[in-house]
């Protein structure tokens, strides 16, 4: 609320100085020469405290929080504050417990559907490379398609569900088993743009 008010005031201030800016001839901006009148902090990266970290879709939510049920915890804050190498294997037990919970509950249901669930061991070997370390890998020589990078339209939730739930070596099932249905929505609510900046315009109301 407070921030919104500040921004509103800034907007008024901006309007008030618009004429001056135009006169000065520096209203165009965007040529990237750094001479555009904006004041950016020159503090080095080491002067910032890392608050959030993110690579793979919902990885932290699914695998760090799982064994703790709902809600963000100090453990999650700790996870977010670290680099992949700092984490090392220290969250593996947490991730393994999450996968085990998951399979204990779901395996009989998957079997009932004619699907082959991954054994806990297989689930770990299929899923862990995606999140330990939590780095998004992208080979630009191949088309971006999650988990090779991540395109805007990739059905990442369904793909991730398949990787952690299903035996991907079993006949007739693979990473796109759920995405092919799809289980979750097939795509975004707005069409993406064919060119930079690619993301759809915002919703205004």
């Amino acid at each position: 609320m407070k921030q919104a008010t500040i921004r509103m005031n800034m907007k008024h201030a901006a309007l008030a100085t618009l004429a001056l800016v135009s006169l000065a001839g520096c209203g165009g901006g965007g040529n990237g020469d750094g001479d555009d009148g904006f004041a950016f902090s020159t503090a080095s990266a080491s002067q910032y405290v890392q608050i959030d970290s993110h690579a793979m879709p919902e990885a932290g939510t699914a695998l760090i929080e799982a064994a703790n049920g709902l809600g963000g915890t100090a453990l999650r804050d700790s996870y977010n504050s670290m680099s992949p190498t700092q984490r090392g294997s220290s969250f593996n037990a947490e991730i393994g417990a999450s996968l085990e919970l998951f399979h204990t509950a779901l395996d009989d249901d998957l079997t009932g559907l004619g699907l082959s669930p991954a054994t806990p061991q297989l689930a770990l070997s299929q899923g862990a490379p995606l999140v330990v370390p939590e780095v998004m890998r992208y080979n630009p020589a191949q088309p971006a398609s999650f988990p090779n990078g991540r395109a805007l339209s990739d059905r990442v939730v369904d793909i991730t569900l398949a990787v952690v739930l299903l035996d991907l070596t079993a006949q007739g099932q693979g990473v796109t088993t759920f995405a092919d249905l799809p289980l979750n929505p097939a795509g975004n609510d707005k069409a993406f743009l064919p060119a930079f900046p690619y993301l759809a315009a915002p919703h205004d109301s």
């Binding site: 919902e58 929080e65 709902l70 804050d77």
Partner: peptide, 25 residues
């Protein structure tokens, strides 16, 4: 099973979710 999936894997509540559900800080 999916009840557990919901509880365990993608815990989300409307208006309170990010990553889409996040930690206190």
């Amino acid at each position: 099973g999916l009840a557990c999936l919901a509880a365990c894997l993608w815990p989300l509540t409307p208006g309170n979710a990010s990553d889409h559900f996040e930690a206190p800080l």
